[in-house]
Design a protein around this nucleic acid. Sequence first.
RNA 1: GCGUCCGUAGCUCAAUUGGAUAGAGCCUCGGUCUUCGGAACCGAUGGUUGGGGGUUCGAGUCCCUCCGGACGCACCA
Length: 596
Amino acid sequence: MKSVVDILNDRISAAMVRVTGRQDCAAIVRSATDPRFGDYQANGVMALAKQIKTNPRKLAEEVVAQLDLSDICEPPEVAGPGFINLRLRPEYVARELLRITSDKDRLGMEKGSEPQTIVVDFSSPNVAKQMHVGHLRSTIIGDCIWRLLEFQGHTVVRQNHIGDWGTQFGMLIRYMYQGAKVSHMHGATTVFSVVDLSDMEEFYREAKRLFDADPQFAEESRRYVVKLQSGDRTALDDWRLICDTSLSECQTIYDRLGVQLTRDDVRGESFYNDKLPTVVADLKKAGLATESNGAVCVFPPGFKTKEGEPLPFIIQKSDGAYLYATTDLAALRYRVNVLQAGRIVYVTDARQIQHFQMLFKVAEMAGWNQRDGKAVGLVHVTFGSVLGEDGRPLKTRSGENVKLKDLLDEAVERARAVVQEKNPDLPPEQKAKIAEAVGVGAVKYADYSNNRTSDYVFSYDKMLAMDGNTAPYMQYAYARVKSIERKAESRGVSIQDDLRDLQNLDLSEPTELDLGKHLVRYAEAIESAAADYRPNYLTSYLYELAQKFSAFYTECPVLDAPPDKRPTRLLLCDLTARTIKHGLSQLLGIQVVEQM
RNA sequence: GCGUCCGUAGCUCAAUUGGAUAGAGCCUCGGUCUUCGGAACCGAUGGUUGGGGGUUCGAGUCCCUCCGGACGCACCA
């Protein structure tokens, strides 16, 4: 079953073909810009009229004459310079609502006809540092993207490309021996316990301080890097311990954020260590890599340095070490050839845009984006910065990065205060649960509801506000529907019984029809969010849904409705609740609560 | 200096990629109110989309040019 837009697009395009005899006719059906124009509008006729140099309005009339949409819409109207306005018939909306309501898991969303294997690369924190606000967006936007893509029917492979290799690890390992008051430079097994590393941040800071201050420490650190790279057992064991400890801290954050990354998704920089020489060798062999000032470089066309010289994509430093670029190339090959990706989506901040443009270009030059003669889609999904109230990147008062844990704690604490104020009689453990759902949800929702490409100002007050496009507003709308269900139960009304034999809906109240029409369009919202990797399309949809529900709820009694109206209204409530729950929890990873 | 992105109501943000009279929320003002949960609903005020020019049936969106901002520009990731 296709979505309404798809059907309308198909039929109107076909009518355009019949009228003009041209093959490439796009109807361009969009949501109407104003409810007075109907529910949808087709804009394609005007563009077509321009191409074939005819009167757009007249062409629109001819297309409408060739059009039969009577099973879906009221008679289409031509307006303005050549818009075709479409209004859904209540009978059609009713039919769709019945169909969607019986579609328990997918709520009317059809799986795509061309499923791909898609690799989504996101989160990617650095080992040995606590996750901070700079990791928030990649982590949650990436999580939402894979959920959207998977729901569309794709096979999605998550990749957490953590920073777990390089000079800093020599430094950390060297520091481990110093921190543990044990002389243990050449033992066979490590004596360090996880407890020793519990405060990774402090550990890292101290190691860095010594590295910068003490030449001997630095020199010994470098020796550990060499040991690591040559596969020394002890060094590797200790390195693994650092990674494990650090990752389990990350995992706590992921779990709390409702982000479904696990250890299985971790494939960090270290994983590609042994594949780096081949990358360089192959690019040399292909004649793409050349030596310049002692470094091995590829010069993709179209990039310039400050001085106007060709800008290199450096894959091996003059001292022989490999870089970020090399690892990314190795990862790209692995994803194409081993993971069999048909598309790779990288979720990183916008500052890396040039790096990825160069990476994609080099991959293309080497033909590494090809498999079985088909080009693998390479997509860089970027996002802006999280700013403080002062408009500068969000920092603590002392100028450090805000730890994700502290940020979430603060949000939850504020949510707890609100719950306490509004609903003091709930059992404490329930209040705690609500506060966690609302606080964490608010942080995530605020991020998702902004256009990801722009910077946004982080404000606890705004994200926890009850009014407006916020998590608490959505969660409250959900709790209200659930409250009706509870009330129904206590009155002995069985919703399932009411809905079971429902054949026709009565959508005669304007707020009923308005809500119904919106419910029918859930799949559309998901498709557009997935197509552009933009969660804010989904939050907008959900917000409108909650608003339309609130209007309906104010206007139309449900349990006290006349017997012939009640089943329709129960269905609207039920489907609203399921849609909000699905959108929030399945696609955005934000918890809903039955009461708040 | 070059490149990329951005500038939308007093504030925080939208605008489905060239569609109709640029929408929300906060703020301010007014209304609904002993409710199936008022953490609600309805309405009003508020705009030369940074300035100027251009492209066309139509521009916040595309092009040019100023002004202002963020980021990036050879061995960090």
